[in-house]
């Protein structure tokens, strides 16, 4: 497991400021979808019972129905687990120095990327639609100078607050790095001589 106190390549004074996950509405979506799929056999079973009440007692179809039901329930359970794992492993960690973006797409596709706060050029927060506005969740896009796609915090809680927090941290980092830059350049010149 990943320990937030021991981040990879962490600087001495680096601290975790924000730990962000997708909004709980995504969890609700997963549970509602799974719930419908779990209830489906009850509906199908009732229809079968109405059509042929003795089918469950049939020498072949009875066991076949039970085996299918168990296999179906296990499959739905695993699909729910996979969605939950996907949700749980989508994490954005904002430290005093950088943003670490970890995205899990299914079970066999994982993306981990990071951006230093002093490289940030533009931050945009976005809330689209009724539900998003009502429950205050949305996306935050972080753009750096590098020619890479925008960093995206997907469906996070309070995107405006996160944007303000990252913006503040970025400003602090830029000021900190401005003070450091000339010093490093001078050191480099001395070494060359």
């Amino acid at each position: 497991m990943i320990d937030l106190n021991i981040l990879p390549n962490a600087q001495a004074d680096e601290k975790v400021v924000l730990l962000l996950r997708r909004h709980w509405i995504d969890l609700v979506r997963i549970f509602v979808f799974s719930g419908v799929l779990f209830v489906l056999p009850i509906v199908v079973g009732t229809l079968i019972e109405l059509a042929n009440p003795n089918l469950i007692l049939h020498v072949f179809w009875g066991p076949a129905l039970i085996a299918t039901l168990v296999a179906y329930l296990l499959t739905i359970l695993i699909l729910t687990f996979t969605e939950l794992t996907d949700y749980w492993l989508d994490v954005w960690v904002v430290t005093s120095e950088r943003i670490i973006n970890t995205e899990q797409h299914g079970l066999f596709n994982r993306i981990v990327s990071e951006v230093y706060l002093h490289q940030i050029q533009d931050i945009t927060s976005e809330q689209k639609g009724f539900l998003s506005t009502f429950l205050t969740f949305g996306n935050v896009f972080v753009q750096t100078a590098a020619e890479r796609e925008r960093f995206q915090f997907k469906n996070i809680d309070n995107p405006d607050d996160v944007k303000i927090a990252i913006s503040g941290l970025s400003k602090m980092c830029k000021m900190h790095h401005k003070h450091e830059m000339p010093k490093q350049e001078t050191e480099g010149v001395v070494e060359e001589k």
């Binding site: 730990l19 066991p63 168990v70 687990f81 996979t82 970890t102």
Partner: peptide
């Protein structure tokens, strides 16, 4: 009937293992 059933159970077990592995490996303490 137990043959296709066993195949499904084996697949679900494999995916259960992958889910647990991912959480144990990449989850936050």
């Amino acid at each position: 009937l137990l043959i296709p059933f066993a195949v499904v159970v084996a697949f679900t077990l494999l995916f259960l293992f992958f889910n647990i592995y991912h959480l144990a490996r990449y989850g936050i303490v």
